[in-house]
Simulated assay, not measured.
Amino acid sequence: MKKTVISLALAALAGWASAGNLQVLVLDKDGKPVQDAVVVVVPANQGAPKVALPTQVTINQEKMRFIPAVSVVAVGTKALFVNNDPWEHHVRASAAGFAQFNAASSGGFELRLDGKPEGKPGKTADAVFEKAGPVLLGCHIHGSMRGHVYVSDSPWAVLTGADGIANLEQIPDGAAQIKVWQADQLLDIPPQSVTVSATPGKATMQLTVTPRRRRI
């Protein structure tokens, strides 16, 4: 019995020691920090993240904006769209990139949401993000509306903060690749190879564009 307990304790310790943390700084082409860039780490070794990506998300339409402007979710996530504006929105989604809302693009969807009646909850509609990759959100009626959802097949994916930094925890030790996606960076920048260890690591990724200022 004592040997079994010791073996379990050693296994748990080994599992704890086989994960590391990584801090990634994302800069624009001028060297300034970029907020709301998606940082994805793909380790060669499998493991479980400290915090799983959400499988449910709520995206509001408010003052002709998508809130949040960028969401990071797991493949298969169910999204609840809520229209808090008093007017109708015709939400549409397609793969983000050069072919924005192109009729030939696949994997998109359309949702019509009536305006919010005064004094009552906003109208809602559901959709599921079934395919990995960035998704562009827009509105058929209001062309200025833009939002994004990044659907990640790696559980190590997070948005950068105002300081341009993304912190990722409990990544399995060994080789890994860092990928960065940002809405205005239409041409992907090359991934960066890193080695994750028990010692916290740092990396810097630089875009080739200066992101447009977000509409407030």
Rank of each mutant, 00 (worst) to 15 (best):
G31R: 03
D28M: 02
Q170H: 12
A127P: 10
V70L: 09
A74K: 14
Q206M: 10
P33D: 07
G97L: 07
L186G: 00
V41D: 12
S71H: 08
V41L: 10
P121Q: 01
A79T: 12
I141Q: 12
S18T: 12
V151F: 10
P68I: 06
N84P: 00
D153N: 15
G201Y: 04
R212C: 01
R146K: 14
E110L: 03
K120E: 15
A96N: 13
V24L: 03
P121T: 02
I67R: 13
E88T: 15
I189Q: 04
V39S: 03
P172F: 04
A37W: 04
A198Q: 13
W181D: 01
A9F: 14
A17N: 14
S105I: 07
M64C: 08
M145A: 13
W16T: 11
H140F: 09
G76A: 07
G76V: 06
S71P: 01
V196R: 00
T208E: 09
G20S: 04
I171F: 04
V70Y: 03
M205I: 06
L113H: 11
P155L: 10
V180Q: 03
G201V: 05
T210F: 00
I6F: 10
L168M: 05
Q182F: 05
Q35K: 15
Q185V: 11
L27W: 01
P190N: 12
A48P: 00
A52I: 00
L22D: 04
T195H: 01
E130H: 13
I67Q: 10
K32T: 04
Q185S: 05
D114V: 05
A166T: 08
G115V: 04
P134Y: 13
V38F: 07
A162H: 08
Q61P: 00
V42R: 15
I178M: 02
